[in-house]
């Protein structure tokens, strides 16, 4: 199981929220499923991250009812949140491509 890189928690949560309104527990499940079980977000870290995103106006929250008929707080992406996700995703891709290039380079590539 891979650890989450520092600074990437927020974008992971943002992505998870972007797939449809979901409560905190559901978001954890989503991240695990999407990463095929490779990424496990620490449960306690999720809620401060959500609070941070909500404060920045990137996600909205409202109370609803879960599948098991419990009251749960559902998070949804806002318009700003979507824009930020888009921006961070392209930034991430640029970074990942560059990292891949550097790390995948063979001997003599830098000449």
């Amino acid at each position: 199981m891979a650890t989450i890189l520092p600074g990437t928690l927020d974008v992971l949560v943002l992505k998870a929220v972007s797939l449809g309104a979901e409560h905190g527990f559901g978001l954890l499940q989503r991240i695990r499923t999407l990463s095929a079980g490779a990424l496990e977000v620490e449960q306690g870290a999720l809620y401060p991250a959500l609070a941070r995103l909500e404060n920045q106006g990137l996600v909205d929250a409202e109370w609803g009812t879960s599948d098991n008929n419990r009251r749960a707080k559902y998070y949804r992406l806002t318009r700003t949140g979507r824009a930020r996700l888009e921006q961070q995703r392209s930034e991430w891709h640029a970074l990942a491509d560059a990292m891949a290039l550097v790390l995948g380079a063979g001997k003599g590539a830098a000449r």
Binding site: F25, Q43, Y47, S66, N68, R70, R71, A72, K73
Partner: peptide, 14 residues
């Protein structure tokens, strides 16, 4: 109160 509720839901769901 909502913060308490949210964490309580998390525990219940798990």
């Amino acid at each position: 109160r909502e913060l308490d509720d949210e964490l309580a839901f998390h525990v219940a769901a798990r």
